[in-house]
Simulated scan of single mutants.
Amino acid sequence: MRRARNGAEVLQLLTEQTPDLVLMDIQMPVMDGLTACKQRRANEQQQGLAKVPIIALTASALAEDREAVFAAGMDGFATKPIDISQLFAEIARVLQLPLSPRAATPAAASVPSQLLDSDHGSALWGSEAAHRRELQRFAAGPLQHLCEDLLTAESEQNFSRLLQQSHAYKGICGNLALPALSSACANLEQVLQQQQPQLIQPRLLQLC
């Protein structure tokens, strides 16, 4: 494992070796993660280099920041503070590693009744106040568009977009210690992965 302090160092390290995966912080001095990723993708195309999987690490849960990550050429997205189980799941998805037997089991329709796990949220964000601030940001932004985004994609039968959105919202809600919403998004994501279109609307009803 190699560490870099900024985007310029990331690019330099990538000239010395081709890692299996890069975890790229978005906010770094000298050169930010988005710029570094764009430059790496340009180098790969121009020089015929191997494509390195890159997962963004960011404290932002806003939809526009997520879109910027993928527009820059990154392959995955993980929010900070890091939830190890969610990060490992994203790494497995990006690297196309086999799911565990438990993860491969068909999705259960049940959803946890607990909307907010305050203790877990405080542990993730370092304090109750920090967790509350992030919840307020989520409520003022992404939460207002969650159902609209999912229902629009479903009505257009854009299942790849629906899968991407359900995965994204699952991670955001999990990182904010919202177990009911995160689980409902996970249920939706799983039926999409298993190509069970008859179960999409019932799973959407758990959310919207």
Rank of each mutant, 00 (worst) to 15 (best):
A42P: 00
C147P: 06
Q198S: 13
G126T: 14
Q195G: 02
F88R: 13
R40S: 09
H120M: 15
S100D: 02
T152R: 13
Q12M: 11
H145Q: 01
N158S: 14
L34C: 00
A104P: 00
A72S: 02
E148I: 02
Q201H: 11
A36P: 12
S60D: 14
E134G: 00
Q114K: 09
L199G: 05
T58S: 12
Q193H: 07
T18I: 05
P98G: 00
L178R: 05
S160Y: 03
A186R: 08
Q136H: 06
Q157P: 07
I54L: 10
L178P: 06
P202E: 11
S122Y: 09
I54G: 10
T152D: 15
R41H: 02
L116D: 06
L13M: 02
R132Y: 14
I172C: 12
L124C: 11
R40F: 11
L205K: 14
M74G: 01
G48Q: 08
E134S: 10
T15L: 07
R203N: 08
L207C: 10
M24F: 07
R93Q: 08
E90R: 11
A50E: 15
A78H: 12
R133A: 09
W125F: 14
T152I: 11
L97R: 08
L163G: 10
P81L: 06
S183C: 09
E90N: 04
L205T: 15
D32S: 00
D117C: 05
K38D: 08
L207F: 03
P29L: 06
R41E: 01
N43M: 15
A103L: 05
L135T: 06
A92C: 10
A72D: 04
Q196P: 06
R137N: 06
K38E: 13
I55R: 14
L162W: 01
L95G: 07
A50C: 14
Q114D: 04
I82Y: 02
K170P: 04
A8D: 11
E148N: 00
S127N: 11
S166P: 02
E44A: 12
R93Y: 03
N175E: 11
R93E: 04
L62N: 13
M31Y: 01
E134R: 12
V191C: 03
R137A: 07
Q39H: 14
A180S: 13
D149L: 01
L205P: 06
S183D: 02
G171N: 06
S85W: 07
T35H: 04
Q136K: 04
Q17N: 05
P142C: 09
N187T: 00
A68Y: 04
L87K: 04
L188Y: 01
A107D: 00
L87Q: 03
S60V: 09
L199W: 09
L11H: 03
I55K: 15
L62S: 04
L49Q: 13
C185D: 05
P197Y: 03
T152A: 15
H131Y: 12
R203K: 12
L116A: 03
E67W: 07
E134M: 08
R3P: 15
G76L: 02
L116H: 06
C173A: 14
P81N: 02
A92D: 12
Q47S: 12
A139H: 07
E156V: 02
L21S: 02
K80V: 09
F70G: 04
R102D: 08
L150M: 05
